[in-house]
């Protein structure tokens, strides 16, 4: 991967979780973001899969650790346990599939209750390349997002349109929250992950701890 060299150098580690109905394109979205390629013939996610990428936002290197969950209803009991500690949540729906959009509220509720209280949530209308099959208008979705006080973007995992923006946008929001002192970065990745060990190995760790002191 391209990020191999800079792997060890980041200031913050954000845990992201991608949720949404089955078939909305969550895994493809993730793949497009990480590999900059469309994943052809991708298969179902069973349980959870992981991806990570370091992005540069606001003068900081931020490592995104992305949990890509299985979208099917039956997996929900399992995937619920993966929300914990997520700083960002991507709720993906399929703009050609009205049902997946209708379920948005359920996913939103899950994200609000199960992830961090201050989780930054974005709604992602995927498959925006399939304009002729569109079942959910941009306006409708963005209004809904506004009502729920969450971000909104449309993407195409196929063409890559908007994909990077989604992640950067959320990361920026989180970063702002940190810089405003709304989030303690030390609690950014809670419980299960000890990514901070790695942070400690370079200047990033100091940056982080000094940041903590200042706020």
């Amino acid at each position: 991967m391209a990020s191999e060299k800079e792997k060890d150098q980041y200031d913050y580690l954000f845990k992201f979780i991608i949720i949404g109905d089955a078939g909305a394109g969550k895994s493809c979205l993730l793949h497009q973001f990480i590999e900059n390629r469309y994943k052809k013939g991708s298969s179902h996610t069973i349980g959870v899969e992981f991806g990570s990428k370091i992005i540069h936002v606001g003068g900081r290197n931020i490592k995104l650790q992305i949990w890509d969950t299985a979208g099917q209803e039956r997996y929900r009991s399992v995937t619920r346990s993966y929300y914990r500690g997520a700083a960002g949540a991507l709720i993906v729906y399929d703009i050609t599939n009205r049902d997946s959009y209708n379920h948005l509220v359920n996913w939103l509720q899950d994200a609000r209750t199960l992830a961090r209280a201050d989780t930054s949530i974005i709604t992602v209308g995927n498959k925006c390349d399939m304009k002729d099959k569109r079942a959910v208008t941009f306006l409708e979705a963005s209004r809904c997002a506004q009502e729920n006080d969450i971000l909104f973007l449309e993407t195409s995992a196929l063409t890559g349109e908007g994909v990077e923006d989604v992640f950067i946008k959320v990361a920026r929001v989180i970063l702002n929250k940190i810089e405003d002192g709304l989030i303690d970065p030390n609690t950014m990745v809670s419980g299960t992950h000890t990514g901070s060990q790695r942070i400690g190995s370079d200047s990033g760790g100091e940056a982080m701890s000094s940041k903590t002191c200042s706020c």
């Binding site: 959870v48 299960t192 060990q197």
Partner: peptide, 17 residues
């Protein structure tokens, strides 16, 4: 365990398929 990977995260896929 230190990586934060809980067994069920990979076991579900392994077992179910």
């Amino acid at each position: 365990e230190e990586a934060g990977l809980r067994p069920e995260m990979f076991l579900i896929e392994w077992f179910m398929t």
